[in-house]
Nucleic acid binder design. Sequence first.
DNA 1: CTGAAAGCGCTAACAG
DNA 2: CTGTTAGCGCTTTCAG
Lengths: 359, 359
Amino acid sequence: MKIIENLSMKQKPTLKIIAKELDVSISTVSKALRDSKEISEETKQKVKAFAKLYNYKPNNIALSLKNRKTKTLGVIIPEIVHHFFTTVISGIENYANQRGYNVIVGLSNESFDKEVLNLDMLANGSIDGFIISLAKETLQKKDYHHLRETIDQGIPIVMFDRVLDEISCDKVVVDDIETSQKAVQKLIDSGAKNIAIITTEDYVSVGKLRTRGYVKTLAQNKIQLDESLILKIDDHLNEENHLEKLEHQVKEFLQSKNIDAILAVNELYAITAMKVARAIGYRIPENLQVIGFTDGVLSKHAYPPLTTVSQHGKEMGKQTAELLIDRLENESKEADDKYKTVIVKTEIIERETTKSINP
Amino acid sequence: MKIIENLSMKQKPTLKIIAKELDVSISTVSKALRDSKEISEETKQKVKAFAKLYNYKPNNIALSLKNRKTKTLGVIIPEIVHHFFTTVISGIENYANQRGYNVIVGLSNESFDKEVLNLDMLANGSIDGFIISLAKETLQKKDYHHLRETIDQGIPIVMFDRVLDEISCDKVVVDDIETSQKAVQKLIDSGAKNIAIITTEDYVSVGKLRTRGYVKTLAQNKIQLDESLILKIDDHLNEENHLEKLEHQVKEFLQSKNIDAILAVNELYAITAMKVARAIGYRIPENLQVIGFTDGVLSKHAYPPLTTVSQHGKEMGKQTAELLIDRLENESKEADDKYKTVIVKTEIIERETTKSINP
DNA sequence: CTGAAAGCGCTAACAG
DNA sequence: CTGTTAGCGCTTTCAG
């Protein structure tokens, strides 16, 4: 075969170019490469050899335009410097790749506007569907028009973790109430009397639900609820000194109360509570037990290693991706059209901030 | 204006549809929307109003095909559940968005094959350029053909952190040698005599460079180098029990030596060293000082809070994105064609694992 | 001022 | 077995 010089390594080969060089038509090349039986063995060989030689790869964009699907998922999360979200992404990416999908990541930074922007930016054909965990600001504003619009446009959304009852779509969550109950029960069983919870403001659904589980468990154990043992952190992540503020709030709380156990709604709150508590003389777990949510590096490497609720982020990621891709690929078969919400199991990982349960 | 019924909310409007409804040509619509002066004010108004009403947004894929550029960057990193990479991504995303670019993320999981796969998957038109930090396995194998090929294909690459001298392209790094020197000098100045370094195998460039800085600083201070104070961790991240193994290696090391300061090449090694050291009776920083690299959550919330070298991941991300986008948008002007490597400043953040420097 | 036509790279129905 | 044609959605000459 004579090698044609105008095919420098630089020039990315296209069907057109191959066709010209081989002096056949574009569609012949296309068919040959896809092993169509319309094409003679001989031609196929020739075309394939040439394609291989010049390392031909079909252009994704052209395929996307033709097929009206991009084989890529848009993932929009509030923050990426965050262990939980990071594990979720890794779960998504892994699974999506296996099924031939790519992942575009957008960050909302907990901002409503950025969430909308990202959605818009990607909804114009760049992706086939969204996986999203809502920004705090969105939850506060309760403005969901952007979600409604993209669903109306026919772009499916799967929500995870921070989800909305108001929007019907597939969802993946942890059973926050039940999990929180398990944790509080464990604290009670191991002898705690004055159990506090450090949680978020109610507009963050996970915070609200976990608080609900806390309240419920106390009731079940006939323990009088003391509202003042519920600390709702007023957390503005984007502020410069939010860590200092957090510590301050926690410190005041711990000093003013007589607490022997804490359930914290995330790692950071748990770690902070431990740090502050230690500073004011508590010993953990002897006179203060702590359980956190989200099993991340912080918990694992904390001092002492923190007992936490593992949310299985990777599994959640896998589930969201699966739900989304299944929906994308079944659009025609209206069979399983109903929206699903899958609940991912949690698990309490016992480390050294809780006591073993009394027999 | 009469509202035409076949435009249900579901149907995504295209120029074609708008043209038909308004009974003008496609090109007129296109021009009107782009405010071409070829079009009469009246028509423009009409078209724009209609487009707005039906929430028309140009299809990105079609634009990409037409313009031969996608306005999206491919970022390939070894791991995402990792504070440093996560901050880099956030820096990239932020800056890229500002300039109208999206970010596709690919994870190599430290595997050569997955790195190649990801590169291939995205190089077929999905992205305009790459930002990449190499997988350990790639560094070991020294097989860089995939990088060479994509550069040959005309797709620019910017490498960061784990970079290669062998490949010419833009790079963003931290000055590892110098930084490491600063850290070691600090340890020496605050009285340390037997300074150890916990580092990676040499094929990880940052490990090698930091080690070099360590060696250099000792020499400058006329301290005899004791090779046995260099612990090179044989780290296979993907193994199940790599944490246990790590602890084990560190423990043996600490027990067999008489060490009063440690420079650790990343957070995990630093934290692990502290944990092990505490367990065998060291007090930090009284008789063991520790400095880590990578200022992440682990360091900040460690017990005691760890003195670390901040690598300014976010800044690095911004720089990589800037380098890449600038190159993409200047392809014609061969002016600044030379490859650059920008060095991002580091900074030692003093917390409680080091002593203040003796006067 | 408006529209027809070509083309980005690819596929597929339809002719030959 | 191979080629022509049309079309995915958009921009951009070039005619009218």
